[in-house]
Amino acid sequence: MKSALDRNPMEGKKVIFVENQNEKENADGVCGHLEAVGESDYSPSFYEKYIKRVIDIVLSFGGLVILSPVYLAIIIAIKVDDPGPVLFTQKRLGQNKKYFKLHKFRSMKMSTPHDVPTHMLDNPDQYITKVGKWMRSHSVDELPQIWDIFVGNMSVIGPRPGLWNQDVLTAERDKYNANDVKPGLTGWAQINGRDELEIPDKAKLDGEYVKSIGLGMDIKCFLGSLGVFGGDKSVVEGGTGEMKKNSEGK
């Protein structure tokens, strides 16, 4: 039996998206596939390879220790609201398009389809638990990713990791080398619109981060993300897809 985290055939490749209506619809809602057009030639800086990793280890370890009582309270709340697993895992795209398993606190009901982004669900609100609604609006459901940072699959700051089958997003990010850095818990796109952004705009902002990556940029993203935990009005259940539906309906 093959593992769900088998090697991505596009790992380390530069890709483009080829639209084809005869193929299966991907997680971005478009029919087509990724096609390799070369090898990635991105060269990480000294800051990315060493300093950023040390910062990630220190912050993630401290976060795991300090937030342990919060984790316990959330676990109890999830269990009471909708019995089932506390953690939700998904196959995501990591640095250089390598697959990894991302962890979240489960905010959706057990009946929710797996590996389907929220904007692809019909009426996504029906799948979200009461506790989950609060967690998502305050980004609390993302807290288990502190472990993903500690083990090296993610960074505190970086482009948000896309689903393994979000081919349009992957291709757009490749235009800006945004797939060549570690994905993050938060990033430049998250503090500049989040769900209000279309895929090309998100990818462009991720590219701006990669172009300016450094301690100053990471501090700016980190400080800009602190307000999210007070309630993020840019979170739209269903994301850009839901906003399109509402716009078309009007």
Rank of each mutant, 00 (worst) to 15 (best):
N8R: 13
P9I: 15
M10Q: 06
M10F: 15
E11L: 00
G12C: 11
K14N: 13
K14G: 01
F17L: 04
F17M: 05
N22M: 03
K24T: 14
K24M: 09
V30G: 07
C31I: 04
H33E: 10
H33R: 15
L34C: 08
L34A: 08
A36H: 07
A36I: 09
V37C: 04
G38N: 11
S40G: 03
D41T: 11
S43Q: 14
K49W: 13
Y50S: 10
K52E: 14
R53I: 05
I55K: 06
S60T: 04
G62F: 01
V65N: 02
I66K: 01
A73K: 11
I76E: 05
A77D: 09
A77Q: 09
A77Y: 04
G84Q: 04
V86N: 14
V86P: 12
Q90S: 15
Q90F: 04
G94D: 13
G94L: 03
S107R: 10
M108S: 05
K109G: 04
S111T: 15
V116T: 14
P117F: 09
T118W: 03
H119P: 00
D122I: 07
P124W: 00
Y127W: 14
Y127A: 02
K130H: 12
K130C: 02
V131F: 14
W134M: 09
M135N: 02
M135F: 03
M135Q: 02
R136A: 03
H138V: 01
D148L: 00
V151F: 02
S155I: 08
I157R: 02
I157W: 06
G158V: 11
G158D: 10
P159N: 07
G162S: 15
N165Q: 13
Q166G: 07
Q166M: 15
L169V: 02
E172M: 09
E172D: 06
K175T: 09
Y176M: 04
N177E: 06
N177L: 02
A178N: 13
V181F: 06
L185C: 03
G187S: 03
G187Y: 05
G187P: 02
A189P: 06
Q190T: 07
I191Q: 05
I191C: 03
D195C: 14
D195E: 09
E196K: 13
L197Y: 03
E198I: 01
P200G: 05
D201M: 11
D201Y: 02
L205T: 04
L205A: 07
G207A: 06
G207S: 08
E208Y: 07
K211Q: 15
L215H: 02
G216C: 14
M217L: 08
I219T: 07
K220P: 06
G224N: 10
L226T: 11
L226I: 14
G230A: 13
K233W: 00
K233L: 07
V236H: 11
V236Y: 09
T240C: 00
T240N: 05
G241A: 06
G241K: 09
E242S: 12
E242W: 11
E242A: 15
K244V: 04
N246Q: 15
E248K: 14
K250P: 10
K250T: 09
K250R: 14
